[in-house]
């Protein structure tokens, strides 16, 4: 069972009127993996995720989520997935505990609601009305509701948009805990490069509805094999073997090489290159 990929997408297409939002996306997420769908705003991330969640129709392509087609899957399939959307503004008049407890009721074997609240770090806010929560707390409540049914696969659509840096760090710690301690498979979308790098086992970069690169954060866009730039006080050189170059420089200078720096393209360089940013 665990060999079944959590998500398998081939040739996914979606158009809105004349606008092509998703243009032949292929995507695989293995069980237990954390995969980030990284791309600028309007790249097709949310459309793709909503199709996988069964919230949106597709025009073409093959989609399997937990072995089923989300467009036709029933309520039993839904017990296996958790969804955290980017703009939920509901539940305002309930308390955190009432909201989580209510959603626990839909699932056959839910978590203890108080455990789910503790998992996301909202125990101190359990009796607070949802409308009094900050943006970060509100998203953490969404995660608590998303995981209260013990899903095997969790969707997070741009979960930290609008967060301050501290709230973002706290949220990342929560996601890492879910993945590491709870063994949850996670597909998240984000337009923050550092978020994808911090959380994901694998990153798929999506631009204009197409996946333009995929891999681990370390190898994305050929980063691991790219030539290294060595710079020193009197010169610069690109090389495949920086160690040998530095050794020969050391010999030439008879010791310390003045102003020596060795750099590979940063993930940001690679990403900006991939999304075609002219800067």
């Amino acid at each position: 069972m665990t060999d079944t990929p959590a998500v398998r997408v081939r040739g996914l297409r979606k158009t809105y009127g004349d606008t092509l939002a998703v243009d032949g996306v292929d995507l695989d997420v293995a069980a237990g993996e954390v995969v980030a769908l990284l791309g600028p705003n309007g790249a097709g991330k949310t459309s793709t995720i909503e199709i996988l969640e069964g919230h949106r129709d597709r025009d073409a392509g093959e989609v399997r989520v937990l072995g089923h087609d989300p467009a036709r899957a029933g309520l039993d399939w839904r017990t296996g997935i958790g969804i955290v959307t980017q703009d939920g503004a509901d539940l305002t008049e309930l308390t955190v505990r009432e909201a989580v407890r209510h959603f626990a009721r839909y699932y056959p074997e839910p978590r203890d609601p108080d455990d789910a609240i503790e998992l996301v770090g909202l125990t101190g806010k359990a009796d607070a009305r949802v409308r009094t929560l900050s943006g970060g707390q509100r998203r953490r409540l969404d995660v608590a509701i998303g995981v209260v049914g013990r899903p095997r696969l969790l969707f997070l659509d741009e979960p930290t948009t609008g967060f301050d840096p501290q709230a973002r760090r706290q949220f990342w710690a929560l996601i890492r805990r879910l993945a590491a301690d709870e063994g949850c498979t996670i597909l998240l979308s984000t337009h923050y490069l550092e978020e994808a790098e911090a959380l994901a086992d694998r990153v798929a970069v999506i631009v204009d509805g197409r996946i333009v690169a995929a891999g681990t954060p370390a190898t994305l866009g050929g980063r691991a094999t790219a030539r290294t730039l060595v710079r020193w006080a009197d010169g610069r050189q690109e090389t495949d073997d920086p160690a040998a170059l530095v050794a020969s420089l050391t010999r030439r200078y008879g010791g310390v090489v003045p102003g020596l720096t060795i750099s590979r393209p940063s993930l940001e360089d690679v990403y900006l290159d991939l999304i075609g940013d002219p800067s």
């Binding site: 937990l66 072995g67 017990t79 056959p108």
Partner: peptide, 10 residues
Amino acid sequence: TTTLGRPGTR
């Protein structure tokens, strides 16, 4: 191939 959740006890 996949068993989903714990159907029947919903």
